[in-house]
Design a protein around this nucleic acid. Structure first.
Lengths: 183, 183
DNA sequence: CCTCGATGAGACGTATCTGTCTCATGTGGA
DNA sequence: TCCACATGAGACAGATACGTCTCATCGAGG
């Protein structure tokens, strides 16, 4: 029986994101496996977290590739990005919440690379006149993380329908909550 | 020397929000006190978390009162809310991240009450035609939490200027990132 | 100057989690 | 059918953090 490594990591992320003090035993049970098996696949807690980071960053970068951020309008690109990120939302939430990415004063290389791509995307959008310039790229980047994490959580607890994930994030991010007659 | 209990709790929240596995010793050092002193004021880790929850909820409800959500336009009320919440942003972030609020299947009463007020505010705004109706009140509520948490973090790491806190959140929340010529 | 109270540092036993091990089970493939 | 291998359950020692304690120090107030 081949263990579904990714499935284990995803359930671990979902659990650890909002209960990061969870025991290895709880992580194992959440994944539907035994603690011994969990240890067989991940040398320890640190290795588990590292695997979560690696997979999360890898999927995030893949999503950035898939979104083709430099094609079409910024709005279209943003929609593609959120769509591409949706399957990895749980992992993303964990990455953002857990700042062990910054351990030892050296920021995780992969993360900073991906982060820079998002930030650069918003900056390009501003330069092309498609995004407001009073909201900094850095903030818009963080806002994306925050909204993705919030929406993933809201979906998880049934507060938002899973099918609305992309709409809720993109619409709020692009247009805001204000109802303007001229839209 | 009277210990500044709130100061201790605020620094604990700032630390625990993004490193919830932090040791009691680390929490104490982050607050600039000894571990023994920390234990003298908070019976244990559980008591510390409980105190964080209590203070956070209390300040959140106070902010909701101060914001007078039912006066003036929804936009004005939202601006007041974010302004009132800013000093408690760190505690809020902790509350949202830590879901021990839901321990034992019984949601914390104070939290659910405050949460309902925010949600009701957005619903009123929708009914008055000031907020879009395609974004559910529950989502807008979660989005507020997410953006407040993200911005508090961004300020903490120097990614966003502290003075921009309110502007960044309110503007994104109300108008979104899209630049529309007719605004 | 003296006293009282709070604090910081550290020692100590305890509880919990960790990481490794063994063993029985059970499932897929030869 | 039999074998190989992965898994789950549990035992076990070691490590780590917890909670409590003592003691010396420091500062405010009398």
């Amino acid at each position: 029986m081949t263990l579904d490594r990714e499935q284990v990591l995803r359930s671990a992320a979902a659990l650890l994101t909002h209960k990061s003090t969870a025991t290895m035993d709880e992580v194992a049970k959440a994944a539907g496996i035994g603690r011994a098996t969990l240890h067989r696949h991940f040398a320890g807690r640190d290795a588990l977290v590292k695997a979560l980071e690696d997979l999360g960053i890898q999927e995030f970068e893949a999503a950035l590739d898939a979104a083709r951020l430099d094609e079409g309008t910024s709005e279209e690109a943003l929609r593609r990005l959120i769509a591409a990120v949706e399957p990895s939302a749980g992992l993303l939430s964990f990455l953002v919440t857990e700042n062990q990415l910054f351990e030892g004063d050296e920021i995780n290389e992969g993360w900073s690379r991906a982060d820079a791509r998002v930030s650069a995307f918003f900056q390009r959008g501003q330069e092309r006149g498609e995004f407001r310039i009073d909201l900094t790229p850095a903030w818009l980047t963080e806002a994306v993380y925050g909204l993705v994490g919030s929406c993933a959580w809201a979906v998880q607890v049934g507060r938002v329908a899973a099918q609305d994930f992309q709409h809720m994030i993109v619409e709020l991010l692009l247009g805001g909550a204000r109802r303007s007659v001229e839209r």
